[in-house]
Each structure stands twice: as C-alpha cells, then as structure tokens.
Design a protein around this nucleic acid. Sequence first.
DNA 1: AGTCATAAATGGAACGTTCCAATAATTCAA
DNA 2: TTGAATTATTGGAACGTTCCATTTATGACT
Lengths: 365, 365
Amino acid sequence: MLLERSNKLLTLEVWEVMRTKATILDIARAAGVSKSTVSLVLQGSDRIRSETAAKVRKAIGDTGYVYNRGAANLRKPHSNFVGMVINDLTNPFFAEMAVGMERVFQAAGIVPFIANTAESPVRQEEVLKSLMEQGVAGLIVSPARGSQTDAFQRVEAAGIPVVFAMRRLPESRIPIVAPDNIRGAFMATRHLIAKGHRRLAFFGGSLELVVYRDRLQGFQEACAEAGIREDAVLLVEGETSRKGGMACLNSALAASEPPTAALCFNDAVAFGVMLGLRQHRLEPGRDFAVVGFDDVAEAEHYVPALTSVAVDTASLGERAAQTVLKMIQSRTTRADDHIGSVNLVVRESCGPTRPNGKTAKGEAA
Amino acid sequence: MLLERSNKLLTLEVWEVMRTKATILDIARAAGVSKSTVSLVLQGSDRIRSETAAKVRKAIGDTGYVYNRGAANLRKPHSNFVGMVINDLTNPFFAEMAVGMERVFQAAGIVPFIANTAESPVRQEEVLKSLMEQGVAGLIVSPARGSQTDAFQRVEAAGIPVVFAMRRLPESRIPIVAPDNIRGAFMATRHLIAKGHRRLAFFGGSLELVVYRDRLQGFQEACAEAGIREDAVLLVEGETSRKGGMACLNSALAASEPPTAALCFNDAVAFGVMLGLRQHRLEPGRDFAVVGFDDVAEAEHYVPALTSVAVDTASLGERAAQTVLKMIQSRTTRADDHIGSVNLVVRESCGPTRPNGKTAKGEAA
DNA sequence: AGTCATAAATGGAACGTTCCAATAATTCAA
DNA sequence: TTGAATTATTGGAACGTTCCATTTATGACT
C-alpha cells in the first residue's frame, strides 16, 4: 500500500480507519463532543449550534466515516430504499420500465436498487430474501416466469408493500400495474383483419404466462367477432425472443395452409419473424403482415418499421412506483390495480396504410 | 385489512407480527429454546440437534420472521452483497455487461444490487452513498459522464473495493476492466481504408470521455499509418445515441467535401447514421461505409447488418466481477487493470466483403 | 450407580445508532 | 448580580444479532 509521506498523525488516522471503520463515537472524540451531538448533526437537527455542527462535519470529512444505516434502523425502523425486481434486464422493454420508476423514486429522495432474476424463480427467491434482510421498504416486482403465488408469502407476511408490474400471478392479492393486454391484442388483430387477412396466427409465448393468456384472449375475441373459424387460426407457442419468433414462423410456413399474418407475443418475437421471412425470400409487410406488442424504441427504426401495440412502458413504471410509494407512506399492503390504456401504432409491417383505412389510434379505453 | 375468519390464535399471531416484526427472540419463545440456539440454527451450525433445529425452523416458518442483516453485521461485519453502478441501463451494451457480472456473483452466492445513474454525477453520488450506508462489500462502477475523481474518495477512504468497468477516470488508482478501445478503433479504421476510403469521419462522443479519446487515438493512428492528411478527416462530436448519429451525419454531409466512410463512437450512433443515410437517399454499405463499436446484439440483425468492433461485453463483465470478488476476499483495494481484446466483425455496412479482402478477424492482441 | 468425556443449549456483553430524560450553558429581564 | 427561561449538549438504555464462556444434558465405560 503506497502512502505518500505526510503528516504522521494523519497517516495514523488513516490506518486507524482501515483497521476498524470509524463510528459515530470516533468522530465525537475527534470533534470533542458527545455521540449524541454527532447523531443530531447527522440528521440535520437545528438544535445544534452551527459552529459545533461545523466542527462535527469537519471531523466526519477527514475520518472517512460512513453512516451505518443498519445500526440506525435498529432503533429507528425507517428504511429508505426500495427494490425493483426485474425478470429480464436485457429486454429493453423492462429497462424502459425501470427508468420510468426511477424518475419517481428519485424525486421522492429514495434510492431504488434493481435486481435481475433472469426469469429464474429460484433466483427470484434469493433476491427477495436478500432485499428483505436488508430492510427494504417496498418492492416492485415483475415476477419471473413460472413464479408460484407462495413465493411471495414471506414478503406479504412481513407486511412489506409490493406491487406487481406487467405480469400478475394467477391468484394473488398483490396489486398490479399492467397494460390492457386483452384490448391491445384485440385492436391489433382487428387491424390485421381490416387489412383483409383471414388466415391468422399468434406467435410466441406460452400458456403458463398470464400475459399470454390475456393477449391470446384478445386475439381470439377479434377473430370471433369477424367470424373467423377456429381452424383458420394458428397458435404457435415459443420463446419470447427473436430466435423464438423465427422458430414460430418456420413451423407456421410448414403448415398445409399457412397464415398470411401474425400477431406476435412481443416485439422481439416480431423482429424474429421478420428476419425469418427474409430468409424465406418473403418481404414483411408485402407478403406477410406482422404486428408486435410493447412498441419498444427499436420498432420505429426497424426496416420495415414495425406496427406494434404501444403500452407506454415508462408511465406504467411511474405509476407502479407511485403506487408503492403511497403504500409505504400509508403503511398499507393493499392498493387498486391499474390497467394502463394501450394504443396501436401503425407503421409498415402490415403493408402500406391505405388513405381511407382508419388507424386504430385513439381507440384506447 | 381483510382477514378471513380462522383460528383465533393464528390470527392473533399474525397481528403480533404486523405490529412489531418478529425477532430472533420471538421465535426462540415460540420454539421453546434460547435466542442463541435460534441464531445457531440460522447460520446452519451442526452443533444443534436436528430435531431442535426442526422445531426452530418451523417456528420461523409460521412467524413470518425476517432475518435482520443490519443487526447481524453489527457484530459480524461480513456483508454479502455487492453493488453495480451503471451509467445507462437503457443502453443494451451496459445491460449485457451487467448480465455477465451477475453470472459470476450468483455462482459465488452473492446478490448484486444494480443502481442506475443515468449519466448524472449527482445521482451517482447519492447512489454510492446509499450503497455504502447499506454496507456494500464491493462495487463495480461504470462512472457517469463527467464524474470527478474525488467523487470516489469517500469510497476509497472507507476501504471498499471498487473496480471501474468500461470507463476510467483521468487520474485514479482504481483498477479498471475495459476493452482495448485504441486497438479496436485502429482495426476498424484500417478496414475502412482497405476498402479504398480516403475521406474518413469519426462520429459521436465528446472529448470529456476518456473512452472517446482512446477510440479517437486509434482512429488517428490508422489514418496516420495510411498517410491520410489531417484535413481529410472529419471529427464530429455528438450525443452517443441514434439521434446523435443522425445529427453527426447531417453536419458531415453539409461539408464541402463530405466523407465517404465513418467510424462511429458506438453502435447506437452507427444506427442513427444509417437511418440518416436513408433519409438522404443513400444506401449504407454502397454509398457510404459505416462501422460501429461494441457489437450489440442488434448489430447482427439490422438491415444492413452492421460491421462493428466486438468487445465481448459479457466476459468483460465477468472479469470485472471476478476482480472485485478477489479484492473482497483478500481485503485489498488494489488490483491490476484488464484490457480485453477486441475483434472486428465484418458484416454488410461497409459494402460486400471482397473474396480476396482479408477480414481483420483474429487480429486482436 | 458413578465417572468422565462429549454434545447441546444458554446467558450476557458487545456492535453503532437513536432518543428520552437530564444536565450544562447561555440569554435576558429585573 | 440573580433567577428564570431558553437553548445546547450529554449519558444511558434499547434495538436484533453474534459469540464466548458457561451450564446442562446425553452417553459410554467401568
């Protein structure tokens, strides 16, 4: 350890700090006051003469002291951080949501810690445990695929406010903030039908996901409304990624009477489908219509630009954050669900917009 | 608070839990043992008879007890979480890096908490403070743009291991894990020159970023090597985003003798440049050559596929995580820098690869 | 049954903070 | 100057855990 030569006393102090980290008592000694005084200064009390406070702050400055919140919470149970448990950080959709949440927390002077579960319920369990042990004040969770309801029993039993974001669990009293998946899928499917398509497919996702069931429901309702027979629609489950999308397309094109249009579980799947179309020498938008879901930033810039159901990710994130904040403040563990309105953004992936064709914009609830 | 009617005793217990959360003492009472025994069970000691341990675990189960790590750390200073401070979570590049880090930490039984600074040094300060107060064991930081060296004094003074990822600060003794930006830019530029381009541009970024200076240096070295005169190269600073890329391109095309090829600060800028080219009715790859930096997943799928400098983000993340783990274990605050090798991945955005043209693959150090 | 060795369980002090109750210092009116 | 009123400061107990030093229970062997 290279220490420049300097004032011996200072050096000694530095060493002292390294061997056992400074406490409130050390800085009390250094400033010639009592620990109580230091504590008061630390919490910005106005009962301390300003010159005393200055002395204390100086001591804090050159001691390298760090406040021990764990110890403080022992006496004053008032944690000031929240956790955001995200199922897949590499999905820009969830990253955008996280950013929306952060805006709200930052404004409230709260630091959110993010933890990634990578869709693993086991990991999720670990993460929740760790967050709780650390004394988290509230949680926003977008549950990992395959989470069981009882994974959140511990959290509920501890009385920690939780809100689910984007995904809900089959039966759970935890409030949720999510987009209107049923209506979104309905609008998108209606759009495809209006473009003249009669053989439709739904690509990607799987029944274990509640979100999938919702979007599928919207899809099927629109089909039913248009009088499309059950055997004219093709459901292909698959991974919710580009790769999954390509796989879905391949198996769909192998059918005896392949579909001419598809609603995709999300944008990633849609990108994969478009990629696959090119490999089959089919042009997305001309030879096959594709609609995505989520409207991530990339959708706008892709070639062809992707028609997608916009869910206003960031403001859903904000809403979730506000909800959990309110729950923390009112020390309740209940809150109302919030189903955010959605919007079909029509671009190029379903063929050129006809001048007289109405877009579904503004139809949202 | 809706409580279904049930066993009165249980209900009472639940209420007890809600008013003041259960401690080790409560579960000791419930299990008919001493707090010490509970503590031992909690840390998996083998000095406790298994049936006693079972009793205790049962009590823990139906009390909704949560371990208070803050209190524990008071006696046994052994925190088991690390912090990852990321400058921009919405950039898939950093998200990928974070995922690489997580792999390593998870294997080590450590939970990493992620915090986003959104390129704000102020936010970064808050985040670091909060992490330290919580008792973080080590930190991986990719510093916010414009961070000052002294922003990390507190952390260093506290003796907390830190490693910088991807970005370094002008003068700091904190170890860094980053790609070989100079060499990457050099290889990319050489590639453009080999394709016959003589009027080159460097798009995006700004001098305050050390990474920018490095990439620029590699760019300029390659130009010098090829004998390209200083006034034949164009430097356009700009935001490191799609929008920034479009802006760079526009100002470049407005020049009297516009460039025919550009090395972009990162892939986001490159995507923006390609977008801008299309708006000018220029086809990227044919009318103008573009190289990106980072090789994010999207680069491969874009149309045209983007030639980019691959930095193996995930393994840099892993390396950073390993480094900080080692530092924590050996309680040191020093470690060697690691400069990761880079690789030019040639795709379509610089025109078709000529059969006899050598790709730069495998040239990495 | 009585030793002993070993295993299992326990009480109490300590960790760094907060906050109440108490003390010390200052100000001000008479 | 004195006393009261006010303002500043302080000691000590408590928070939930760990761990050392003890005590108590359990067997194994004469």
